[in-house]
């Protein structure tokens, strides 16, 4: 196929795609769909129906992993989430790694079956390899073994790490990882403890 023909073909495909978008693509969640979704759930304990109200990041990221989010949308999601990060007023970013390990092992929190008075966990091991000792780890996220040993504990690295746990989508739009600080899953102290688990040279992550 000549280059000219190829160019024509792609213009044609683009026109088709544009036409599809104009008439609302099959995959777009419509207002009617949202109504159906809300009618299909009922509130239970702490899990109210407003959990189905998507913010812009959730709306833009409701796509298959094989679909790439538009560059401009990704940039907007990251900017919006970066602006949401609140650093501790006392300036201290590293807490107690031992507490951090407990948080990393615990998966409770925010389910309607959970007691809202019990602190939530971070459930880090569900998706990440972290320490040598824990062989029961998941693989949805990358291995974090030796995270701090490889990166050091500079203030910049502490701020990056704390921010990345607080709101991963500030750095990576549509990340699978929950926005632990942004969505009030973990407290400020818990975020510090998990930061320490990753960075403290004494933490099992860095042995």
């Amino acid at each position: 196929m000549s280059i000219l023909k190829l160019a024509f073909a792609s213009v044609f495909v683009c026109a088709l795609v544009a036409a599809g978008c104009a008439t609302v693509s099959d995959k777009t969640v419509t207002q009617q769909d949202l109504k159906t979704i809300k009618a299909s759930f009922k509130e239970n304990g702490q899990a109210k129906l407003d959990r189905l109200d998507q913010d812009e990041a959730q709306r833009l990221c409701s796509i298959a992993p094989s679909v790439t989010i538009a560059k401009a949308d990704a940039a907007r999601v990251e900017k919006m989430n970066l602006e949401s990060i609140k650093y501790p007023a006392d300036g201290k970013l590293m807490g107690d790694w031992q507490q951090g390990e407990r948080i990393a092992q615990t998966g409770v929190g925010k389910q309607y079956s959970d007691n809202p008075a019990t602190p939530s966990g971070g459930n880090c091991y569900a998706c990440h390899q972290m320490s040598k000792a824990e062989i029961s780890f998941g693989t949805i996220g990358p291995s974090l073994y030796n995270y701090g040993k490889l990166r050091g504990t500079s203030v910049e690295m502490q701020r990056y790490t704390y921010g990345r746990i607080y709101n991963p989508q500030a750095y990576s739009a549509c990340s699978n990882m929950p926005r632990f600080g942004h969505n009030d899953i973990l407290t400020e102290q818990q975020l510090k403890d998990v930061t320490a688990l990753l960075l403290d040279p004494k933490s099992p992550v860095n042995q």
Binding site: R51, D53, C61, S62, P65, K110, S136, G138, I140, P178
Partner: peptide, 28 residues
């Protein structure tokens, strides 16, 4: 299909968070 990819809740989870890539695990 749309619901499968629908993100929501405090954890931003959709069905696809855990079930749209091959060879992944939660814990073991």
């Amino acid at each position: 299909e749309k619901m499968f990819f629908f993100r929501g809740g405090p954890h931003d989870f959709a069905c696809s968070t855990c079930h749209a890539e091959s060879g992944k695990r939660i814990r073991l």
